[in-house]
Every structure is written in structure tokens, then in C-alpha cells.
Design a protein around this nucleic acid. Structure first.
Length: 329
RNA sequence: GCCCCCGUCGACUAGCGGCCUAGGUCACGGCCCUUUCAAGGCCGUAGCACGGGUUCGAAUCCCGUCGGGGGCACCA
């Protein structure tokens, strides 16, 4: 059985690079320990671990044990550190104040939790040798180590946390469905070399993820009634879908409309309620008589852009549509 | 400076000696659809870092060069 661990520092919302590690570990291991590496108080941000957990849950990454906080295992680390000698090969294992450093805490925990495989970013590669010797000094068999490439920004440097879409939270806030993020990270797999962050790719996957949602799921995520779904299709992310929903649900602001004939014609067709009640057919008829469809959209939604007009008409109850027409006239 | 990784279209990759005048996806460009922004459909531009080997044959194997990244902390 492959026992792996994902061990982020609680520095707030998960960086996509860390998320890559999380997904990679989940995909690689049979058993996953979630460990919070909080040995450096200076790095920890308040509430950082809760944010972390929330991000992992949102991504759908599940763990089998934990979260284990390293700060709670300090005594065990110190004990192991004494055993190894505080100047182990010239590397500091215990700080002057007696607290353990990352190297010590990480290896001791990996030993105690019987981790068999370590999957982590390239930035840890230089630690591999030291850690291997620490494992051996502790009388344990060093785990197999797999390093994966880092996610780079446009500048070719490690993606800054401030960069657009660099944190899981920012993607969630941008209305990207979790499936899209997970899929992107899954596609990257265990990159051998560093890779450029591809936000357009995530946006693409978001479109596909939304397309794959059933009507009911889409309505639920957007928080809109089921009848609105036809008008929601074509949105590129959940935020856009919410905006589409709002354009139909919200009372339009009072707008000046130039083409009363088109609105009146629309009202007639709607009231007649025969074949032309089919929204597509209705729009086609208005188009055939050279109607001002732009004015109609404006009257119905208060906006000059949005879902295709027939979808707006379909999503709007007739009574409400008539009311908005009257208000605009 | 030293150590470690890596190098196929703009991006992510397929390729693991002949099936490659290099395939896919995204991005980009064009057309269609849409009296809107999108979504969708069709078409297109574009790449094996360079130089030596090995071989009948190299994107694929070897060496060198160049390029990129990471590290050289009482940070993780």
C-alpha cells in the first residue's frame, strides 16, 4: 500500500502549486495523511488551516488521516532531535529556542506515520539527500520520493500567490467550478519539468464542466430556479451564469426604448399565444418584420447583452414579460 | 561560483529507432451561427534549442554547447 502525505504550511488559501501536490498525492497514494506543517510561527497566518481545509474540500481531495498539526508533536520532534545530535551534519535540527526545524519535524513525522512515498514539488529536491540520511539515522527506510514540476507565472518564475487565479480561493470566487480546477491539475499529473500556469485552459475547462452539469445541478449552483436554465447555458463560469440569472429575475431599471412598435408587436404575439408562443419562433417572426430586437432585450432585461433573446423569452413567465413591456412603453 | 533537475507549435503535451513531410488540446486568426456578449460548428497559422556522433534509418540513443528552473537558511 502506498502511504503518502500532503503537508502544506497554513499560509492561507491553497496556492495552485500546492493544490497540484494535493491532487497528485491523492491520485498517487492509496492512503493519504493530511499534515499541517506549522513549525514556523512566523509563517502561519491566523485561520490559515481552516482555509486550507475548505479549499481541499472544495476541490474534492479527501484524506484518510489528519489533519495532524506538527506544532502538536513538538515534544516527539525534540526527543528525536536530541537523539540525532543537534548538529547533525552541520544542519540545524533544533533552533536555539529549542523548537524543531522543518527538516527534523518532517522526517520524524514521515517515519512515525510510516509514509512510503513522498510526492512533492521540485523546490524540495535539494532536501532529498539530507532527508534520506535523516531517515537512516533514525533507523528507518527512506520512502520513495517523486518530485514534480512547479507552476510558473508568465515571467517564468514560480507563480506568485498574488498572480491572477493563483489561489484556490480566487478561482472559486471567479466562479470557476471545482471540477475544472481538479481536471486541470489532473491533466498536469506529475510534470517532470516546471509548467506555465494556464488560466485560459482552466477557463476552457470551466465551460466544459458547466456544460456537463445537469439542468438541476446548474440551477442549484447558480441559485436560480430550474426554468431559468436555458438562459444560463453559454455562460463561461458560475458568476456569469449568476449574472444571466439576475438579468431575468431582477426588475429592469427604467430604460428609454426607441422602438415601441417592436414591443407592441411582441406583446401581440405573446398574448395571441398560438404557434408563435414558441420563443424561437416568436423571435424569428419579429426578426422577419424587421423588429428592433435590441430594444426588446433592453425592455425585458434592462441590459444590452446577455443570453440569446429566445432564451430570455423562454425563461420569463408571460405575465412578467408583459409587465416589463408595459413598463418600458 | 557550486550542486540538482529539465528542454517537441505561444501554452500543456503524444511520441519511447522506421507507422512523423511530427498527432492532440487550449490560446490565436478566419468563416458560419447569433440584430448583443458568449456558447456552438467549420477551416487555418505555428514546433522536435543548437552542434557533433551511433545507425541502413533519429524527435526518439550517446556526448558537448546553449537555454530555463530549483537549491546552496535556526523558511517550509
Amino acid at each position: 500500500m502506498k502511504k503518502v502525505r500532503f503537508a502544506p504550511s497554513p499560509t492561507g488559501s491553497l496556492h495552485v502549486g500546492n493544490a497540484l501536490s494535493a491532487v497528485a498525492n491523492r491520485g498517487f497514494g492509496d492512503w493519504l495523511l493530511l499534515r499541517i506543517d506549522d513549525t514556523d510561527p512566523a509563517r502561519n497566518v491566523p485561520g490559515g488551516d481552516e482555509e486550507l481545509l475548505r479549499d481541499l474540500e472544495w476541490l474534492g481531495v479527501e484524506w484518510d488521516e489528519g489533519p495532524v498539526r506538527q506544532s502538536e508533536r513538538g515534544e516527539r520532534h525534540v526527543e528525536a532531535g536530541r537523539q540525532l545530535g543537534e548538529r547533525f551534519e552541520g544542519v540545524t535540527l533544533l533552533r536555539e529556542d529549542g523548537t524543531p526545524t522543518y527538516h527534523l519535524a518532517s522526517v520524524v513525522d514521515d517515519v512515525d506515520f510510516e509514509i512510503t512515498h513522498i510526492v512533492r514539488g521540485n523546490d524540495h529536491r535539494p532536501n532529498e539527500e539530507l532527508h534520506r540520511r535523516l531517515f537512516e539515522a533514525l533507523g528507518a527506510t527512506p520512502p520513495e520520493v517523486v518530485h514534480h514540476g512547479l507552476i510558473l507565472g508568465e515571467d517564468g518564475k514560480k507563480l506568485a500567490k498574488r498572480a491572477e487565479g493563483a489561489t484556490v480561493a480566487s478561482l472559486r470566487d471567479a466562479g470557476i467550478p471545482p471540477e475544472a480546477v481538479r481536471r486541470y491539475l489532473y491533466e498536469l499529473g506529475l510534470p517532470k519539468h516546471d509548467v506555465h500556469y494556464d488560466l485560459p485552459r482552466i477557463r476552457r475547462l470551466a465551460i466544459e464542466a458547466i456544460g456537463a452539469l445537469s439542468d438541476r445541478e446548474l440551477a442549484e449552483r447558480v441559485g436560480a430556479p430550474l426554468e431559468l436554465v436555458p438562459a444560463l447555458r453559454g455562460a463561461r463560469d458560475l458568476n456569469e451564469a449568476r449574472e444571466y440569472a439576475a438579468s431575468i429575475l431582477e426588475e429592469p431599471e427604467r430604460v428609454a426604448v426607441d422602438s415601441p412598435e417592436t414591443l407592441e408587436r411582441f406583446r401581440e404575439l405573446l398574448e395571441r399565444g398560438d404557434d408563435s408562443a414558441d420563443p424561437k419562433e416568436l423571435v424569428r417572426e419579429l426578426k422577419a418584420v424587421g423588429g428592433d430586437l435590441r430594444a426588446l432585450r433592453l425592455a425585458l432585461t434592462g441590459r444590452d447583452r446577455g443570453p440569446e433573446l429566445w432564451a430570455v423569452v423562454a425563461a420569463l413567465p408571460h405575465g412578467e414579460a408583459l409587465r416589463r413591456i408595459d413598463a418600458a412603453l
